[in-house]
Write a protein that binds this DNA or RNA. Structure first.
Lengths: 146, 146
DNA sequence: CAGGATCCCGCTAGATACTG
DNA sequence: CAGTATCTAGCGGGATCCTG
């Protein structure tokens, strides 16, 4: 095949790239944290509604059912929600509790580790809320000059 | 058309979804921060090498040239690097300085706003480094039971 | 040297339908 | 209720070529 060379070069490049990433495990953690939905799930289970960033410290971490989470986050597909929850469970950030009632009941809850991460995320969210206006002002100013 | 109904429902759903996202600007900030390369660029310009998370506090924020950044991050394509830098500049997180020498010289540097974000990111990175082992242990244990 | 333009692949997220 | 399975489109992101 004529494209073999190109394909192989690509594959090799890919391997090198992945290897580079693999040497620094913090990248993987960063990737996990940076996930689009992880932050939202964390906020939901942590008791801070991302859409209501005013009085969020009132309610502490709590267990939530699957459908509760789905409603709270509102915009996530059940596929992504399940996927995110599974990943978080795998990393020991949430616990999944199945209660074998007639229609099965499943609860999700933050672990201690998950709660500690939630605190850090809160700070990040705090920064975002505090500096939102400035960022948007900069953005508008920049776009206006374009 | 027979599919109009379905298509319209989709379009409407899409609008609702976007509207929901739009009402909470913190989501947009979160998205910006969650970007794959933003964190790395921030770390690079902030003086903390993501691959060397041990003694990072020694060097403070500094200006870097485009090619310097490209080498430091090593794995980013110039497209993504440029794209990321432009986005950060737009949001007022970095400043881009062009020095019209014979081969043009361009420096990138954190703004005050960028530095403040960098501090928060550092905490996040700190959490990741501190809890990496526990997360990976959980992950292995979970995979083992599978 | 810094970056714009273009092409194109792969993966991921979302929609839909089915199950225990 | 709480998922699983499958299909597909869209786009993130890389390679390549070109410019000032």
């Amino acid at each position: 095949m004529a494209t073999t060379t190109a394909a192989q070069r690509r594959a090799q490049a890919r391997v090198d790239y992945d290897a580079f990433l693999a040497v620094c495990p913090s990248r993987q953690l960063l990737a996990r944290i940076s996930d689009k939905w992880v932050g939202l799930v964390l906020c939901a289970l942590g008791g801070s509604d991302p859409t209501m960033h005013a009085a969020e410290a009132v309610e502490g971490p709590r267990a939530m059912r699957y459908s509760e989470l789905a409603r709270r986050i509102a915009g996530v597909s059940q596929k992504m929600l399940t996927q995110t929850l599974r990943a978080l469970e795998r990393d020991g950030l949430v616990v999944r509790t199945v209660t074998p009632t007639v229609p099965v009941t499943v609860h999700y809850e933050l672990t201690d580790l998950g709660r500690s991460l939630h605190l850090v995320m809160r700070d990040l969210k705090g920064w975002a809320e505090a500096n939102m206006e400035e960022v948007f002002a900069n953005r508008d100013a920049h776009d206006a000059r374009a």
